[in-house]
Computed example of a mutant assay.
Amino acid sequence: MTDWAALVPLKQGVESKSRLREALEPAERMALASAMAARVMTCLSNVNAINSLYLLAPTEVSEWPSHWLPDSGRGLNPELESARAQLGNRPLLVIHADLPHLTVQDVQALLTAADDRGCAFAPDRHGRGTNAVALRDANPFRFAFGRDSLTPHRQQRPGAAIVERAALGFDIDTPADLAELHDMCAARLKS
């Protein structure tokens, strides 16, 4: 089906990737967040099942292939609740902007699982957080993003599919994640 809307929340400005303060200066964090988000947006724009793409952020990024939903600063989960209601509870993918290796195939696997089960979650690689939520149905759902979000998400939808793929699980939140990303990039350059 090609009726999915994809929503990418993005912190902007000096609060971008704030958990990386020990490793990066503010300008570096902002550049990293923007580069990863641009890659995620490009990936999503190439997924046939997605017919509309939205950026949830304080300011619009006009060069990205998306519609802008202003983030008014109430916090991620309330902003997502409001955005879902604004989009009319249609099939919705909420996916984080810090997935540097995301592929079209990863997104298609997640959406296919949600088509089959009504809902699918992509856990982080530690199995505690949630990097993406795909909601096929219009049933109520309370977003619980934050640390250890997978458990409250699964409690709401115990029958949801769990889609574990390396690129969906690898997000950049900590200095250790950043170091691993650098090592991966260096290894690619050597090969």
Rank of each mutant, 00 (worst) to 15 (best):
M1T: 02
A6K: 04
L7H: 09
P9V: 09
K11H: 10
G13V: 00
S16K: 00
E22A: 15
E22N: 12
E25A: 01
E28H: 00
M30G: 06
A33C: 02
S34E: 11
A35F: 02
M36P: 06
A37V: 04
A37L: 08
A38F: 06
R39Y: 14
V47P: 01
A49Q: 10
I50D: 01
S52M: 14
S52H: 11
L53S: 03
A57P: 11
P58L: 04
E60G: 12
S62E: 10
E63H: 11
E63N: 13
E63K: 06
W64C: 14
P65V: 02
P65A: 00
W68V: 12
W68F: 14
L76W: 00
P78K: 11
P78G: 08
E79G: 10
L80A: 10
E81F: 02
R84D: 11
R84A: 09
A85G: 14
G88V: 06
N89W: 11
P91D: 04
P91E: 04
V94T: 06
D98G: 01
H101A: 13
H101I: 05
T103G: 07
V104Y: 13
V104I: 14
D106V: 00
D106L: 03
V107E: 07
D116L: 09
D116S: 14
R117Q: 09
G118P: 02
C119A: 11
C119N: 05
A120D: 03
A122I: 08
A122F: 12
P123K: 07
D124E: 03
H126R: 12
G127P: 08
G129F: 15
T130N: 02
V133Y: 05
V133I: 07
D137H: 11
P140S: 05
F143C: 03
A144G: 01
F145T: 01
G146S: 08
G146I: 07
D148V: 06
T151N: 10
H153Q: 02
R154L: 14
R154C: 13
R157Y: 01
P158N: 06
G159D: 11
G159Y: 02
I162Y: 05
A167L: 03
A167R: 02
D171F: 12
D173I: 07
A176N: 08
A176G: 08
L181R: 05
L181C: 04
R188F: 15
R188K: 14
S191A: 12
